[in-house]
Amino acid sequence: MSPGRPPSSGSPALAASPVVRCVRSRPQRTVGSELYGQRWMAETAFSAIKRRFGPAVHPRAWYREFRELVLTAAVYNLEQALKQ
């Protein structure tokens, strides 16, 4: 084995560990259509907000970033309410 290259087959001790066996034996979960619909709506709203107000958050302090995001979302919601 040369330095910088991972082993091709893995460690036998790792393969026999209880954690790896537990992870391999868990059933695969799929995202339900209900959750995917929620994600789709959220991604659509994020895309519209970024197109309208720009993709960047300008403040450097976390609390100012949060404030800008909250105000941006509030303005977007007001615009949507006024359109209806």
Rank of each mutant, 00 (worst) to 15 (best):
T30D: 13
S8W: 00
S8A: 06
P7K: 07
S2E: 15
P18I: 07
K83A: 11
P3C: 06
S25P: 00
R24L: 15
A45D: 01
V23R: 11
V75I: 05
R29G: 00
A61I: 02
V23F: 09
V20N: 06
E65K: 14
G32V: 04
F66R: 11
R21W: 12
S25A: 15
R39P: 02
L71R: 12
R51T: 06
E79Y: 02
A42G: 03
R64D: 10
H58V: 09
I49M: 13
G4L: 07
T30A: 15
A45F: 01
A56M: 10
S47D: 05
H58P: 03
A74W: 01
R60W: 03
A81S: 09
R52F: 00
P7G: 14
M41I: 15
E65G: 01
I49K: 06
R67C: 13
R67S: 14
S33G: 06
E79Q: 10
M1C: 11
S8K: 01
T72M: 09
S9K: 08
P3M: 12
P18V: 03
R24H: 08
V70N: 01
E79V: 03
A74R: 01
G54R: 08
R26T: 07
A74G: 10
R29E: 01
G37M: 02
T72L: 08
V20K: 12
G10L: 15
P7E: 14
L35F: 02
G32W: 02
C22P: 00
G4P: 09
R52S: 02
R67L: 13
K50T: 09
M1L: 13
F53P: 06
M1D: 13
V19T: 12
R39D: 06
P27W: 01
P12G: 08
P3A: 08
R24S: 10
F46N: 06
A74C: 07
P6D: 02
P12L: 08
S47I: 00
L82G: 07
R29M: 03
P27C: 04
G37I: 06
S11F: 04
E68Y: 05
A73T: 12
L69I: 10
S33D: 14
K50F: 00
V31S: 15
A74I: 04
A73M: 12
G4E: 10
A74E: 12
P7Y: 07
F66L: 09
F46A: 07
G4M: 08
S2T: 12
F53H: 11
E65A: 04
Y76N: 02
S8T: 05
V75M: 03
P6H: 04
H58F: 09
V20W: 10
F46P: 00
P18G: 11
S17R: 01
R52D: 01
E65Y: 00
K83E: 14
P18D: 15
E68W: 06
A56V: 07
V20I: 15
K83D: 08
R26C: 12
T44R: 10
E68V: 15
R39S: 07
R5A: 12
T30P: 00
R64Y: 03
A16C: 13
S2V: 13
G32H: 04
G4A: 09
R21Y: 06
A15W: 13
C22Q: 15
S47Y: 02
P27S: 12
P6W: 02
R60N: 05
G10S: 15
E68H: 09
Q38H: 13
V19L: 12
F66P: 01
W62D: 13
Q84V: 09
T30M: 11
A45I: 04
G54I: 05
L71C: 11
F53Q: 05
P55K: 12
A13W: 12
A61H: 08
